[in-house]
Simulated assay, not measured.
Amino acid sequence: MTITRSIKIVFCLLVFPFCCVTAQEEYTWELGGAIGGSFYMGDANNSTPFKDTGIAGGFIARYLLNPHMAIKGNLTAGRISGDTRDFKNVYPNGEYATFKRTIFDLGAQFEYNFLGYGIGNTYRGDRRFTPYILGGLGFTFAPKPAKTIFTMNIPIGVGVKYKATPRINIGCEFTMRFSLSDQLDVTQREGLQLEDPYQIKGKGWKNKDSYAFTVFFVTYDLFPRCKDCNN
């Protein structure tokens, strides 16, 4: 073995770890948390977004398919409330209702980034910042006071994300959750029941309750997708 060949081998062994680090701009998972606000749309609020906003927060995980696509899971808790006393509609017998409750949301969504998201691969158009859209399927759990509700929901939303460092992501996201229940605003056993205040039954998605989360999130990249060093 010649001296020149030995030097090349030693050089490759020294450079290889740094080459892999350079390639580790892509990761397979993101884990983190989110905090923000939640509001409800239904029989006590059918036209005013962000009315009676309560606190919301939870955990999120993303499986990164590629720079444009990801699958995200969430476990989020939020506070929703409503009051019909300042409502323009008049309910039968002049009755009114108020409610407050905590809801828990477990779901999965498919995310599409409009720009390739990442650092280090600008040759293919990746950017530190991108807007994105999402849609998926979720489950809503709302414990008592009046009755416990467990139902499905369809989340649809938009967001923006920014890669603050090679492994830290920050962003903001708004999602509307369309539930299959009309009882999220039923928290009392007597008086006006917002489940069916006009005695008009709804089928399918008609006359159902929905709620929204607006959150700021921070996630950390895990499990690098290391590429081979090509020399």
Results as ranks from 00 to 15, higher is better:
Thr48Gly: 03
Ala142Val: 08
Arg79Ser: 14
Ala146Leu: 05
Ala23Tyr: 11
Thr53Arg: 07
Arg225Trp: 04
Lys51Thr: 10
Phe217Ile: 09
Thr151Ser: 10
Ala212Val: 13
Phe216Ile: 15
Thr4Leu: 07
Glu95Thr: 13
Thr102Leu: 05
Phe114Ile: 05
Thr48Trp: 03
Leu194Cys: 04
Asn93Ile: 04
Arg225Cys: 05
Thr102Trp: 01
Gly136Cys: 03
Thr102Met: 09
Ile35Asp: 08
Asp83Ala: 09
Asp228Arg: 08
Phe114Gly: 04
Asn113Pro: 06
Gly32His: 02
Val215Trp: 02
Thr28Asp: 12
Asp209Trp: 01
Trp29Ala: 06
Phe87Cys: 12
Met41Tyr: 02
Ala164Ser: 01
Ile168Val: 15
Phe87Arg: 11
Ala142Asp: 10
Ser81Arg: 00
Gly157Ala: 05
Gly32Ala: 00
Asn66Glu: 09
Leu222Val: 13
Gly57Trp: 01
Lys88Ser: 13
Trp29Leu: 12
Met152Glu: 10
Leu31Ala: 07
Gly33His: 02
Asn89Ala: 15
Leu134Asp: 12
Tyr27Val: 10
Asp228Lys: 06
Gln199Asn: 14
Ile60Pro: 06
Tyr132Ile: 14
Pro224Val: 09
Leu75Phe: 08
Phe18Asp: 06
Ala56Ile: 13
Thr98Ser: 11
Asn231Asp: 11
Phe16Pro: 08
Val186Met: 09
Gly57Lys: 02
Thr214Val: 15
Gly94Thr: 14
Glu111Ile: 14
Pro166Lys: 02
Thr175Ile: 15
Leu115Tyr: 06
